[in-house]
């Protein structure tokens, strides 16, 4: 599955990473090399093999429904780029 420049632009948009026209060519070249490496997988017959998401065959532990967190807004917002009245500020969201 060969990549092209449109793919680069599409995935860069999905990933919200600006890629300039000049960077796009270089990115295409490097990513194509990596995909070439990945393509080796296609030679393997994996029919009937259950995908492995976790190395241990264990199930989810559940947490008791008890409040354990306290308000740390001031501390958390001390490292925020922009806040006002306790809100994180971003450029206007259009719905």
């Amino acid at each position: 599955m060969a990549l092209n420049l449109d793919d680069i632009k599409r995935i860069a948009m999905l990933a919200r990473i600006e890629v300039s026209e000049s960077e796009a060519q270089e990115t295409l070249h490097k990513l194509s090399g990596i995909l070439g490496l990945i393509e080796q997988m296609q030679a393997v017959d994996t029919t009937g093999i259950t995908p492995m998401s976790h190395s241990q065959d264990v199930t989810q532990r559940l947490r008791e429904d008890v409040v354990t967190k306290t308000n740390q807004r001031e501390l958390f917002q001390s490292i925020a780029p922009a806040t006002q009245d306790g809100l994180y500020l971003v450029p206007k969201v259009i719905e």
């Binding site: 947490r63 429904d65 409040v67 967190k69 308000n71 740390q72 807004r73 306790g86 809100l87």
Partner: peptide, 24 residues
Amino acid sequence: TNTKIFSGASTTYGAAPNTQACEV
């Protein structure tokens, strides 16, 4: 529930902005 689905932060409605927003 008393707490959020993946953390122990309270779900009480109407609190001041981000006062129930824990690290998770």
